[in-house]
Design a protein around this nucleic acid. Structure first.
Lengths: 331, 331
DNA sequence: TTGAAAGCGGTACCAC
DNA sequence: GTGGTACCGCTTTCAA
């Protein structure tokens, strides 16, 4: 292995000078610097990161703890995070902490304790108290995307998102509106999902439409939305004229269910989601768009600030806004 | 920070003994071991991994280089890999190397060169020559899942998979069969996709059905399948009675296209995919199932062997087999 | 502006 | 069995 000693030797300087020349800190004559840099690429020298880490106390790595990777939202967040760290030069340690899994316990009990990172980005974590304590013990910055694992949180305003969907439907004249989601039996996404449900209920109440409100709990994925919508649309009594899905996957499930039942969208029932999932365009789904990729990137940038010891503020909630497609129409 | 010196002091032994007691190598009296272990959890001692790394030359981390994270297949592989490393105790470094991106170049030029891992799992990598050279320079084991970045490759046999789909359709009496995929304009998944296309063409030829074969290139996702199927099904001339999608996402796109055109599945057209995507069941898609999660897990286990210096063999291609649902029927 | 040397936190060889 | 000690490769005083 070629180390900094080799570089120093080839450049005819001491290790100390070589180190300074490379880190850019401290005085080095430009002549010396030149020779060092030259030696570096003659030898193809790459600093041993654990040696650097040992000496500086910094790891130049960031941890990302995330419940799933196979859901659209999470995958996009992860890619956004990665992109920023790719050009800050930080390595990314992945911790896939599925709620309730043994793996998750291992991560909190063992992996995080090793502190192989300078900071931790928590995505949709929804930690319990014990987990929160672990995060605190880290003594390292924690930035969250959706879910509240510390002071720095990046997420859309769920109430605002639901309000946008709701008002769009109201403007089209809908009154019998249903909400799919909230109370996912598997308890994932629980907090976000519940916030959205409560926002919906409040909105209906304030509009004097409380009795026209419907709600079917749904697992937060396509199959869940399909099942929930099937129940909703085959239930006795007047059929709702519009459905809000707690996210696009649920709304897409609802679209499939409606088609399966021979119902036309938006003729018989209008559909709105939240997300702007990659499939939303294929399904013509009207939705409240958000950008998980951008949220991940923003979280990563905030993390870089925190690691650098800067306390710059987070500038408000992440953006979201209506994207009109063909799944909504007049009541 | 509490180090091994503190543990040794509290246990009343030397650093050397403490180290031995913890690593389990070398002679330590059980009395001493007991006291050390005791000290460890009184102090909540966790070894500093970079110090360990410096001293041993091992990182206790594994890199995973993967083109995407937001596709079903890749996400599942990643989760499979993570699961195994979670209980081997190895950290997982993620390198999201999207083909053609600047990030990918950075990864190959800078990140990998740091060698912060004991081995690298390459998922669907399809590296070019320069990239392959970089991997070689790593001097660390490389295990691939789909794509050929070294001697150890875990993947299904694409020819076998296509043959299964083909023979299923033939048994139902289909002759005008189309293949969607192959020649993805974005050039991702290029090798796999092409292998499947060629297998299809050979099969049709051998069955004397060459002139009944159709082929429409498709991007390897739902939107791509939708577009390709729409073209195929609205083209002049006799309509194919069956379609093989290069993967389930493409086949699902085709299902949506068929419905959009008022065609019934499988009445007017039968559909088969490859994968058993999580949406396949919702769409009733008949498919050649494979398990990317299991492939990832297997790759991780092989990696553990290689890191340990063992040369155990890979036991043949990953499994795949037909899953019958409702998207295929008699010609 | 530069170099010697003392760590950083472990591991492992070697003598006792 | 156990302890002293020389590294692992780099950064960072401190003195020159």
């Amino acid at each position: 292995m070629t180390g900094i000693a080799d570089v120093a030797a080839l450049a005819g300087v001491s290790k100390a000078t070589a180190s300074r020349a490379l880190s850019g800190s401290g005085y080095v004559s430009s002549a010396a610097r030149e020779r060092v840099l030259d030696a570096v690429d003659r030898l193809g020298y790459v600093p041993a990161s654990n040696a650097v880490g040992l000496a500086t106390g910094r790891t130049r790595a960031v941890g990302v703890i995330i419940p799933y990777v196979h859901r659209w939202f999470f995958a996009a967040v992860l890619e956004g995070i990665q992109q920023v760290f790719l050009d800050s030069g930080d390595d990314l340690l992945l911790y896939n902490a599925m709620p309730g899994s043994v793996g998750r316990a291992l991560i909190f009990d063992d992996f995080l304790a090793r502190k192989r990172f300078d900071g931790l980005v928590a995505v949709g974590l929804e930690p319990d108290d014990a987990e929160l304590a672990r995060l605190g013990a880290l003594e390292r910055p924690v930035v969250s995307v959706v879910g509240e694992a510390g002071p720095d949180v990046i997420a859309i305003d769920d109430v605002a998102a639901v309000t946008i969907a709701f008002e769009h439907l109201r403007a089209l004249g809908h009154e019998r509106i249903a909400f799919l989601g909230g109370g996912d039996p598997s308890r994932h996404w629980a907090r976000v999902d519940r916030r959205r449900l409560e926002a919906f209920q409040a909105l209906m109440r304030d509009a004097g439409l409380e009795s026209a409100a419907r709600h079917v709990p749904s697992a937060v994925d396509v199959a869940g939305g399909f099942a929930a919508a099937t129940r909703l649309l085959t239930a006795p009594g007047p059929r709702p004229t519009a459905i809000i899905g707690t996210c696009d996957e649920v709304a897409i499930g609802a679209a499939l269910a409606a088609r399966g039942l021979g119902l036309s969208v938006p003729g018989d029932v209008s559909l709105v989601g939240i997300d702007d999932h990659e499939l939303a365009v294929t399904f013509g789904l009207t939705t409240v768009k958000q950008s998980p990729f951008e949220q991940g990137a923003r979280a990563a940038r905030v993390m870089l600030e925190r690691i650098a010891g800067r306390e710059s503020l987070i500038e408000g909630p992440a953006e979201c806004g209506l994207v009109l497609r063909t799944s909504t129409g007049p009541a």
